[in-house]
Design a protein around this nucleic acid. Sequence first.
DNA 1: ACCCGATATGTAATTAGAAACATAAGGTGA
DNA 2: TCACCTTATGTTTCTAATTACATATCGGGT
Lengths: 125, 125
Amino acid sequence: MAGPKGSKYYNIFLKFKVWLENTKGESILGNGKFELIDGIDQLGSLKAAADKLGISYRKAWGMIRDAEEKLGFCLTEKHRGGQHGGNSVLTPEGKELIEAYKELLLEFDDAIYQITKKFFNKVNK
Amino acid sequence: MAGPKGSKYYNIFLKFKVWLENTKGESILGNGKFELIDGIDQLGSLKAAADKLGISYRKAWGMIRDAEEKLGFCLTEKHRGGQHGGNSVLTPEGKELIEAYKELLLEFDDAIYQITKKFFNKVNK
DNA sequence: ACCCGATATGTAATTAGAAACATAAGGTGA
DNA sequence: TCACCTTATGTTTCTAATTACATATCGGGT
């Protein structure tokens, strides 16, 4: 809860978001894409990752293309055809990126907790 | 710059955003509205603040109404008519809020700086 | 009484973004 | 060679979010 019961900011929350951006100010990838990439890592296919997140394959595919295009290198290695129709796995760079991002989130959560507390303290009389 | 020249993440940046949200997951106010409120504080009128931000009066007015509605208390005190047509000033609560927000941003910047350094270190080979 | 400039607000028009639809292509095993 | 499943991608349809347009109100000063 954001503040003590009855305070002005009771049940109001401070939220935040982090993402990577290029010099043009375009978003390269944020939480949604990270989750998708993580899903590919876990499940071994874009289709399966998309299903897990409840988004269409078309959308998921576009997300990956967009991210890789803007980064300038590939996060995934795709294979189509074959016994199971195809599959996708992370490149070493992709793997590195999600690992770093996971740690980033942890550290962020920590920092945020402190800052949030201070904010509501100040604002709640 | 995000990393050393030639590194994979050269000219890629970590960005963030903070905002207030209610229990329904609706955004109450973020950076745009804070800037507007700050403008009102500095310039003494919604019109002037809107002009400063390059947005229409109609839009600015809607932003304030929306924020106040969702917060459940007023951030501004509006007067219409009179010698100069009218004016708006911040309520004590409004003033408090932008002050707290400004400090919040500073602390956020600080945290981001630390975390960013670590992130790009890990990800740039 | 009227003018001015700012607040107040409904409605219509435009745009952007997301989701849905459709279809091709690739490779392995039956 | 055909079936199967996944990657690959263009096009179109919806929907949500902005922006634009149009007006009304208010009160001090001239």
